[in-house]
Design a protein around this nucleic acid. Structure first.
Lengths: 193, 193
DNA sequence: CGATTCTTTGAAAACAGTCAATCTGTGTGG
DNA sequence: CCACACAGATTGACTGTTTTCAAAGAATCG
């Protein structure tokens, strides 16, 4: 399973066998079953997480139980609650598994050691960071400028290999509309073809 | 005017007089009058911008002319279009001045030289980056979870020294509501006291 | 199969958008 | 200094969309 991660990294970064060995030596593999949590609100996010297989979801809960989905992370995607991870403070978010999932983990201390030892890795991480800023900025723009139909379409474009694996009510909670409205949007879009 | 920047930085980062001198030597000061642009859609964002005085606004325009405000940057705030700056590609955004504004600028090449020469500056920049990720993430959560009243209140809390200096229709374009709706929200809130 | 989770539908009420008109304040030129 | 123009803000009436609530219909899983 770990090979999935290494194959992905080799396609992204020029890493030597030594680098890879070092990265591997500080990693942990973990399996999370559907509906299990890997992070709960109030806990500190101790790890950087790479998803090898499966699907994770980051969300927050209001007092009344309503859920708001911040993001999904499927195969070959990095995730964590960045704020909690970076400052080592309690997280406002939960991360759970939508499918049975396998991840590779590094603690913050270990990961810092990695990027300080491997300059190409540092550059790569900075780039991942940069593109996640762009992605989230694009989402804000969508939030304030798109119609609900466009938001849904944009979601499909942004998560082409995820949108079909996620229950509708979670998509709705990602878009910021009620599940009934999303249901009707899809109905309307079907008619248009 | 440049002293504003230096005073701010000294309060944030441990910089030596040599560091400060070096940073200054690569900087440019620029004044932008109200309604003038410092970046236009399609141009490449060549600079990191620090606002000494005044107020900038980053926004995009739809074909029909509708504007969507991504952010405001007042005194002692860094800004630029990060995506364009980082990849040196054409920007999707405009940045203009809401008030007469004075900024300090560094080109990307010069700024890279700075952070590679001054490690404490690099750390600081990474922290600014990290907290801007958190801020924008908080905005997404607001977008999908708050009522319009709450969004407006959150805007006031997030930009306490800005909200009063910005025309309402720009606030509306930041929140993603029509200016009439925002007007009515304010009216309703007044009544509540 | 039965239970749970997920999705859809309908109807009513709440809400936001649009259009048009009016009001307010600011600043500029005569 | 005044008058006028202009940008900004508000209001009302109307329209269209979304939420909410309730119920029922699929799909999935043990």
């Amino acid at each position: 399973m770990y090979e999935i991660f290494e194959r992905f990294m080799l396609a992204q970064v020029a890493l030597t066998p030594d680098d890879l060995q070092f990265i591997r030596s500080l990693s942990t593999i973990k399996k999370i079953r559907k509906r299990q949590f890997i992070l709960r609100e109030g806990e500190v996010a101790r790890h950087k997480i790479f998803v090898c297989r499966g699907l994770l979801r980051t969300f927050s809960r209001k007092d009344d139980g309503t859920e708001y989905t911040m993001r999904f992370a499927a195969e070959n995607v990095w995730t964590t609650d960045h704020e909690s991870y970076y400052h080592q403070i309690p997280s406002k978010f939960n991360i759970d598994a939508i499918e049975d999932t396998t991840v590779v983990l590094w603690t913050r201390e270990n990961f810092i050691e990695l990027v300080e030892t491997i300059p190409t890795l540092r550059t790569y991480v900075e780039e991942v960071m940069a593109s996640s800023i762009n992605a989230i900025q694009g989402r804000v723009l969508g939030n304030i400028s798109y119609t609900n139909e466009e938001k849904y379409q944009d979601f499909i474009n942004t998560y082409p290999d995820v949108f079909n694996r996620v229950p509708l009510h979670m998509v709705a909670s990602y878009l910021g509309v009620s599940r009934e409205t999303l249901s009707r949007i899809r109905h309307a879009q079907l008619k248009q073809r």
